[in-house]
Write a protein that binds this DNA or RNA. Structure first.
Lengths: 155, 155
DNA sequence: ATGTTGTTTGGTAAAATATTGCAAACGCAT
DNA sequence: ATGCGTTTGCAATATTTTACCAAACAACAT
């Protein structure tokens, strides 16, 4: 377990703090959505979060889940993560870390590795880009898919 | 210009070779789609490619563009690249390189930097992942957006 | 406890994005 | 030119995401 075992608990505290300091109401939906995301170690799409939240709040609207996730991203307590697939994926861990995606089953997990967190940031050269941050996306095979062939070559 | 100035020309040769060796017909659509992608320095979505191709082949179908891009990805002559946004983006450059995305306008450009291409690959530890490859996604501000505030915080 | 206020939610609709099935058209080798 | 297998375009469909607005809710002050 690379993450703090009580990660989702501290994440709920963070949510409370942000809501309080920004004057945002702490709704049951926001609570359930954050907890559903923070207890997972994969990086679900908005619809996958919706399915999980539905089990806890039967009448919840899909719209709400999409909207709340975007709100969380805007307040910096959830991040959208890099994926070449077409759907956005979300991650409650906003500290710098990296991701492993299995090219067999598309599962995504975290990689915390301090030695990868101190890459020298490229400086603005010919393109003039000011670089602020980065994440590394590793691709490979999870243990369950190690034997199979890729279902999505090149992705 | 970090890429070879005749990149799109050699890319067309590569397409011809792949089609020939795999027995794929070289259609005008495939030619136009590859060229439309290869001449760009940004990394368009399938629909953006469709718009460009439309200008050259007025009756082209959106379906064809989506389909051909996926075919190119399967044959390894185009890659889907990492983006936290919801839409898949495509890149005709399949050599290892990295990407810069502006958090202001979402433009994506390449970063070729050999010193970033030899990162030590993490070995399977507790998670058992066999890592094959990686790309680094840098975020920052392009020259045009350097002064503005982000339109998508945290993305 | 109760009311007030501003925000959020749910539901519907629709926009945006992506995929499928099939007949007609096309590329390529002969 | 002819024939074969593949690709294309179209139309329909599926999937993912956003917009709108009346009703419900959270927070705070009574």
């Amino acid at each position: 377990m690379s993450l703090h075992p009580d990660f989702h608990i501290s994440k709920m505290h963070e949510l409370e703090q942000v809501c309080r300091s920004k004057g945002l109401p702490m709704t049951v939906q926001r609570r359930a959505i954050m907890e559903s995301l923070a207890v997972r170690k994969d990086h679900p799409t908005a619809d996958q979060v919706f399915e999980t939240v539905q089990a806890r709040i039967p009448g919840v609207s899909r719209t709400t889940v999409y909207r709340v996730l975007e709100t969380f991203v805007q307040y910096g307590i959830v991040q959208k993560i890099n994926s070449p697939l077409a759907r956005a994926r979300f991650d409650a861990d906003t500290a710098r870390h990296h991701h492993l995606r299995c090219t067999g089953c598309d599962v995504m997990v975290d990689l915390h590795d301090p030695s990868l967190d101190r890459l020298p940031l490229p400086t603005p050269v010919d393109n003039g880009f000011q670089i602020h941050d980065y994440t590394i996306s590793f691709t490979g095979r999870c243990p369950r898919c190690a034997g199979k062939v890729d279902n999505r070559r090149g992705v």
